[in-house]
């Protein structure tokens, strides 16, 4: 049988490592202010938050439900959603964090990155 001291040590190690990793990941800035909005893992919007001059609202509606996103210069959040857990709404503003806003029930992810998820843009 395993000694209790061994168990305590292993759990303590896991805990400390996880705390260190959390701090490292969460305090690390996102390195950019382009909000990439993904639905089912596919890029839906790529919003350059620093280039925004006014408030913009995006409504993401699928057969799973609705999320209303609000982007302002420098930040973005989920204003309202009809998901049961409301975790995405409770997250509040995403301004400079590498951690994404997630709405698991609606499979929506909002992530800040340094650049848009495309390599180049064409338009005319």
């Amino acid at each position: 049988m395993v000694k209790t001291r061994t168990l305590v040590t292993i759990i303590l190690c896991i805990l400390l490592l996880a705390i260190a990793a959390s701090l490292f990941l969460w305090l690390r800035p996102a390195g950019g202010r382009v909000a990439n909005v993904y639905l089912d893992g596919e890029l839906l919007y790529s919003i350059d938050l620093d280039a925004l001059t006014e408030k913009k609202t995006y409504t993401v509606e699928t057969d799973r439900g609705v999320n209303v996103l609000v982007a302002e210069p420098g930040r973005i959040r989920v204003e309202s959603a009809d998901c049961p857990d409301q975790v995405c709404v409770d997250f509040g503003w995403l301004t400079d964090s590498a951690a994404p806003i997630v709405c698991l029930p609606h499979r929506l992810v909002i992530q800040l990155t340094g650049e848009t998820d495309v390599d180049a843009e064409v338009g005319g």
Binding site: I11, I14, L15, L17, A18, I19, A20, A21, S22, L25, W26, Y38, D40, G41, E42, A98, A99, P100, V102, L104, R107, L108, V109, Q111
Partner: peptide, 23 residues
């Protein structure tokens, strides 16, 4: 499951904090 369903590997960033929470 979340990474598989949303096809977003970057969700693993939540693994450390969820580990702390789990402990």
């Amino acid at each position: 499951a979340a990474v598989a369903v949303t096809a977003t590997p970057s969700l693993f960033i939540y693994l450390p904090i969820l580990t702390v929470s789990g402990v």
